[in-house]
Simulated assay, not measured.
Amino acid sequence: MTRPAAINSVEAENKADPENETTRKPARLTVNLTSKSNTALHRAAELSGHTKTEAINQALQLLEMTFAAQERGGGIWIQDSARSEPARLRIF
Rank of each mutant, 00 (worst) to 15 (best):
Ala6Asn: 09
Ala6Gly: 04
Asn8Met: 07
Asn8Arg: 14
Asn8Glu: 15
Ser9Trp: 05
Ser9His: 05
Ser9Gln: 13
Val10Arg: 12
Val10Tyr: 04
Val10Asn: 05
Glu11Ser: 09
Glu11Asn: 11
Ala12Thr: 04
Ala12Glu: 12
Ala12Trp: 05
Ala12Met: 07
Glu13Asn: 09
Glu13Thr: 06
Glu13Val: 03
Asn14Lys: 04
Asn14Trp: 02
Lys15Asp: 11
Ala16Asn: 05
Ala16Pro: 02
Ala16Gln: 04
Asp17Trp: 01
Pro18Met: 03
Pro18Asp: 07
Glu19Ser: 07
Asn20Arg: 02
Glu21His: 10
Glu21Phe: 08
Thr22Met: 01
Thr23Tyr: 01
Arg24His: 07
Lys25Arg: 14
Lys25Ala: 11
Pro26Val: 04
Ala27Leu: 11
Arg28Asn: 10
Leu29Met: 15
Thr30Gln: 14
Thr30Trp: 07
Val31Asn: 06
Leu33Cys: 12
Leu33Val: 07
Thr34Trp: 06
Lys36Gly: 12
Lys36Glu: 15
Asn38Gln: 14
Asn38Tyr: 10
Thr39Asp: 15
Thr39Pro: 00
Ala40Met: 12
Ala40Asp: 11
His42Ile: 11
His42Glu: 14
Ala44Tyr: 02
Ala44Arg: 07
Ala44Thr: 06
Ala45Phe: 05
Glu46Tyr: 06
Glu46Val: 03
Glu46Phe: 09
Ser48Glu: 10
Ser48Gly: 15
Gly49Tyr: 10
Thr51Asp: 06
Lys52Glu: 14
Lys52Leu: 13
Thr53Ser: 09
Glu54Val: 02
Ala55Met: 04
Ala55Asp: 02
Gln58Met: 07
Gln58Trp: 04
Gln58Ala: 10
Leu60Glu: 03
Leu60Gly: 13
Gln61Asn: 11
Gln61Met: 15
Leu62Ala: 13
Met65Arg: 07
Thr66Gln: 05
Phe67Trp: 08
Phe67Gly: 04
Phe67His: 08
Ala68Trp: 01
Ala69Thr: 05
Ala69Glu: 02
Ala69Ser: 11
Gln70Asp: 10
Gln70Leu: 05
Arg72Ala: 13
Gly73Pro: 01
Gly73Ala: 05
Gly73Ser: 02
Gly73Met: 02
Gly74Val: 01
Gly74Ala: 04
Gly75Ile: 01
Ile76Asn: 00
Trp77Glu: 12
Ile78Pro: 00
Gln79Trp: 02
Gln79Ser: 06
Asp80Lys: 14
Asp80Ile: 13
Ser81Gly: 15
Ala82Tyr: 06
Arg83Gln: 13
Arg83Val: 13
Ser84Pro: 01
Glu85Thr: 07
Pro86Leu: 03
Pro86Glu: 07
Ala87Thr: 15
Ala87Arg: 12
Arg88Glu: 12
Leu89Phe: 09
